[in-house]
Design a protein around this nucleic acid. Structure first.
Lengths: 143, 143
DNA sequence: CATGTGAGGTCAATATATTGACTATTCGGG
DNA sequence: CCCGAATAGTCAATATATTGACCTCACATG
């Protein structure tokens, strides 16, 4: 088959992740946040009460060191707040600031709409299959 | 459904990409290269003749600025070589060095084996569906 | 053949992400 | 009760990735 550039699944997933980030960025650009920052804010918005930094890192499957920086930047932007955890002197609790909450509420509809539009060239069945398989592979690789 | 933490497809794909990179790293660690460097070397290994930096960037769907750095590091490692393109004074051609070629040949089997083992908890049908849908979404987002 | 557009490449700034190394605190078992 | 192991967090180094700004060269159109 001449001309068929076999795209490796691994390379494909990494490229797709980069492309998603790139295409998503304009939605958040006016609010001066990045898609990854959105992911953190979104988790914070859905969590009852505050989360520890390590808890956030586990939920988003990134290293705690990475989360240290992410939260520091969100704090810098005035979107998240940290306070000491009285029950554990090592730990701190992170939560949305009032501005952070307002931003999440404001951006949520645009984000959801973008995600809905995403698979427009792909059948709903294939999109559901994709989500399921991605979750399975994540579980496999986490173990 | 209490306890069901809906994982967003976008977030899932990004997490999967990060996990794949993390789990793949040990294969390349002894050779002092990263999974992304492997991707570049692999493309160079399969291409007839040399590729321009911009051509490499297009093939791997990253910015030319990123590719500048990637190739510089591969050159630093003695795995790739650049030479001026006589047909275009702006451009240069990148190709594997002898050491680079040897490294690709050496690592190829381990990489292929790792990829084959990847979907062991997932049916072959779902893996093929995944590959197809990832490619479709990439096309959609590239447009 | 001159000029403007666009393509190839680099550099700088910044965000994301990893690991390694370290401190401080918690917690379980002897 | 105390001590070693595990957990929470930080800092530093490095790779990946983006955009913006800029230079050089190619090429088409007038």
């Amino acid at each position: 088959m001449p001309g068929t550039t076999e795209r490796d699944l691994i390379v494909g997933v990494i490229q797709l992740a980069n492309l998603l980030t790139r295409r998503l960025a304009p939605i958040f650009e006016k609010s001066k946040i990045t898609p990854q920052q959105w992911a953190v804010l979104s988790v914070l918005g859905e969590s009852e009460g505050a989360l520890s930094l390590a808890g956030l890192a586990r939920k988003l499957l990134v290293s705690k060191q990475n989360m240290t920086g992410m939260v520091a930047r969100l704090e810098q932007l005035g979107l998240a707040e940290r306070e000491a955890d009285p029950a554990d002197l090592r730990s701190s609790k992170v939560q949305l600031s009032r501005r952070g909450r307002a931003l999440v509420d404001k951006l949520r509809p645009s984000y959801d709409e973008w995600v809905r539009t995403l698979g427009k060239d792909v059948s709903q069945r294939d999109m559901q299959s994709l989500t399921r398989t991605v979750d399975r592979l994540i579980s496999e690789l986490e173990a």
